[in-house]
């Protein structure tokens, strides 16, 4: 029988329309990029029995299983239940009919670096926060990309996302415990921003230069430097790749709590709903912000949110990035 598909429904179901006629590809979300190894059994089973026996690891920390026939979609969706149960329903994501597979594809998988389950540099458990964000924003059709990273090293490249959540630590200094070894000062100067200096055998921190990476705590041999147990995050916005003005994300809110970050991200959907250009198939959030301007975006997403006292918000953002349109100033040699 000839295939007669509703392409948009297929895509919304997290299946892809591929270049191979008659064959789709299943996309599996792994919120926070961390899952029980037991799920590999199911992924392997689907790939080998329905697909071409291969699995692609996506840039967003999901799996993509190529060459599954479109007519097998309902069957494979039913098989996905244990994955949806463990990775989505268990963290509180609302899915009305999980037997039908993924309910939306627009808001992408929330990616995360490995965080402090493993990494010595990470300031928090990135997967836990990624899942908390996933619970609040999925399922949703708006095209938003979010990544969560454990420290300003930003290994997940959060600054290339619409929202980049960067875990920072407020260093707390115990003057009495410091032996003046200068390990933190030298390291900060060489590897970070030079926020630390020696004075009278002790260390002075310049709060304006400190980016909250936590390196001083890692260096300190007496635990004179510790992290404030309160967790803080820097939220960067509207980083992107793509064909139109790719750019790195800029700092929006500094020293925010997790609750503030999650509330801002949640608010973004209301803002987008109001300003999105519906003549486009799927307008990315960053281009909506380009159109409305930063201040309109800022006021909308901060609406109703009580910021934690330490949080600071950007008054203005100097957007950068690459403009291909600058090519219009280039002329061919033949042109006079």
């Amino acid at each position: 029988m000839t295939l007669d598909l509703d392409r948009k429904k297929v895509v919304k179901n997290n299946w892809r329309v591929t270049k191979v006629r008659g064959k789709s590809a299943l996309r599996i979300r792994i919120p926070g990029g961390h899952m029980s190894a037991k799920h590999f059994d199911l992924i392997r089973q689907i790939a080998e029995n329905y697909g071409n026996g291969t699995v692609h690891i996506t840039t967003r920390q999901g799996f993509e299983l190529p060459e599954i026939p479109y007519e097998k979609i309902p069957e494979v969706n039913r098989m996905l239940y244990p994955l949806l149960q463990d990775l989505e329903l268990a963290i509180g994501v609302q899915i009305d009919k999980p037997e039908n597979g993924y309910p939306a594809a627009g808001t992408r998988n929330v990616a995360a670096c490995i965080g402090n389950r493993v990494c010595p540099f990470a300031n928090f458990d990135t997967t836990v926060l990624a899942k908390k964000i996933e619970k609040e924003i999925y399922p949703n059709d708006l095209h938003v990309k979010i990544a969560v990273t454990g420290c300003p090293n930003d290994c997940i490249k959060a600054r290339m996302h619409d929202y980049g959540v960067i875990g920072v630590a407020e260093p707390v200094y115990d003057y009495e415990r410091c032996i003046g070894c200068q390990a933190c000062v030298k390291n900060c100067k060489k590897k970070v921003t030079g926020a630390l200096a020696m004075h009278n055998g002790k260390v002075v921190r310049d709060e304006r230069l400190c980016i909250g990476c936590g390196e001083c705590v890692l260096q300190c041999p007496t635990s004179a430097w510790t992290r404030n147990p309160e967790k803080y995050f820097n939220l960067t916005i509207m980083g992107r790749t793509g064909k139109k003005n790719p750019r790195i994300g800029e700092l929006f809110v500094q020293w925010a709590t997790a609750d503030v970050v999650v509330a801002i991200i949640k608010n973004t959907y209301k803002y987008a709903e109001k300003y999105i250009d519906k003549t486009l198939v799927k307008e990315h959030i960053g281009y909506i912000v380009d159109r409305t301007g930063y201040q309109v975006f800022r006021d909308a997403v901060l609406d109703g949110i009580e910021l934690n006292p330490k949080a600071r918000v950007a008054k203005h953002i100097q957007w950068g990035g690459h403009f291909y349109a600058s090519d219009i100033f280039m002329t061919d040699q033949s042109a006079k």
């Binding site: 402090n116 010595p120 928090f124 300190c220 635990s223 510790t226 992290r227 147990p229």
Partner: peptide, 15 residues
Amino acid sequence: RFEKQGRFSDTDIIR
């Protein structure tokens, strides 16, 4: 126990 005062985040030290 000094909670969350360890070298790595969310680790403790005992002193």
